[in-house]
Design a protein around this nucleic acid. Structure first.
Lengths: 249, 249
DNA sequence: CGTAGTGTTGAGTCAAGTCAATGGTTGTGG
DNA sequence: CCACAACCATTGACTTGACTCAACACTACG
């Protein structure tokens, strides 16, 4: 409420600061990064496996997801990205990308030159630490997904995904989980949970019948956060948020 | 072959250098870190969920694994660590650990004070970058595991785990995959692949019958790397090794 | 030489997958 | 504004990969 003209990189600052405090100098340095805004249609590729990154894309509006394809051609989605997420920290310091990043909805990304981002990270310790921490939290999220897919049943897998999405969104800034428009098709949900689209459909209907979720079109409401959280076996510790604001824990 | 007295942190240097070159100053600075050697029995906890790390443990000899337990009490193993792996980069910069690290065999760890490791990372850019890269590669490995469990069948899951283990070991230094003593019980294999011990047993027997693996006691031989690699859908790209030495690709 | 941890095996069950068809939405161009 | 096309959601009937339960065998170690 103190920055009247919204800056595209505000969300990145908020994301980084949600895991590790930034001082004013850090914030200003980030907002002073040169960037180029780009709009992309849903389904556009932002990073392709094998790419050598030259820019670091930050998601400004919309949603994206990371995925990989097996030799047999099946797809696994390994994370969903929300505004403020840097899409390329994973690739910025590695020679070539080992996975794809694709727009889930129409998105705006701010592209920062790789060298500018890297220089900032290593000249301002506070920013460097924040980037490292953000990277570690992403790794923790991958671990949680491994557990989700490896050791929970289909119902819990889907609920856990919903919980994570709602929780991160509400921690970032607004939207209570009450109304949470997860912009994924049932096929994408299946690829994120290691299930088939048909089974996802059946599970969703079951969850709706039990009152754990409510659906209208593609928009889901989560009427009872506490019950949801329990049914999902969701413990937000792995998100390492400084101020676990968001939904009442 | 140029360093006559083996230093416990040599393996760490090799691990970091396998992903990103280190100059002589970087190497010396790492080897000059103060550390304390500790021996731990198999099954000992090295990190516990909820811990606040004050030291950074580096695995010197033996093997360890990361895991987490669901609310229902089932366990998911999310990685296997080999000598040279830093076990605490994941926690070093986060307030509290979100998972456990446990010794798989009897191990030796070198404990470095957290502040010493952190100071080094931020005073020598080369070391800082190497730590960041190493962290990113670990994240890439978690993603691969997510795909492994989410989108491959039981046979591929187990083979993929074997491939990764053999490949990383041979890249680190020696042991052709021919003879690869994976020190895991079938129950641990099950927890790493999202299967049950009984099913792991049956799959192993099947793999043996097909000549993809050979077993004697707990020691596995991998007689045909090329066939194994194909059957496992194993592509080492995600390990981001500079010199993909190891098994013939 | 006993005991506890592993590994092995069989029989029966079930959660999730497959195949295939039908319905609903959305967007687009005539 | 309608009609088509493409995509997505839904449903039923059937199959299967992996799980469960329960017993038994091996091995290592004190």
């Amino acid at each position: 409420m103190t920055r009247p003209p919204p800056h595209p990189l505000d969300a990145l600052v908020a994301q980084l600061a949600s895991h590790r405090p930034l001082d004013d100098g850090d914030r200003e340095a980030i907002l002073a990064l040169p960037y180029r805004l780009r709009s992309l249609e849903a389904q556009s590729y932002i990073v392709r496996e094998g790419d050598r990154a030259e820019t670091c894309a930050v998601l400004v509006t919309g949603f994206a997801f990371r995925h990989k394809v097996t030799g047999e051609g099946t797809r696994q989605i390994m994370s969903v990205n929300i505004p403020g997420d840097a899409l390329d920290f994973q690739n910025l310091f590695l020679a070539e990308s080992d996975h794809n990043v694709q727009a889930l909805t129409r998105v705006q990304v701010a592209e920062v030159a790789q060298h500018a981002m890297e220089a900032l990270a290593f000249s301002r310790g506070g920013v460097g630490r924040a980037i490292l921490v953000s990277t570690l939290v992403e790794a923790a999220t991958f671990r949680e997904w491994t557990m989700n897919i490896g050791r929970r049943d289909s119902r819990q897998r889907i609920l856990h995904l919903l919980c994570e999405f709602a929780y991160r969104l509400s921690a970032q800034g607004g939207a209570l989980p009450e109304n949470c428009a997860l912009p994924m098709t049932q096929e994408q949900l299946a690829d994120a949970t290691g299930l088939t689209p048909v089974h996802v459909n059946r599970v969703l209907k079951g969850l709706e019948a039990d009152g754990l979720i409510a659906r209208e079109r593609r928009i889901m409401r989560l009427p009872d956060w506490k019950r949801l959280r329990e049914a999902a076996d969701f413990n937000p510790r792995y998100l390492h948020l400084l101020a676990p604001g968001g939904p009442p824990s």
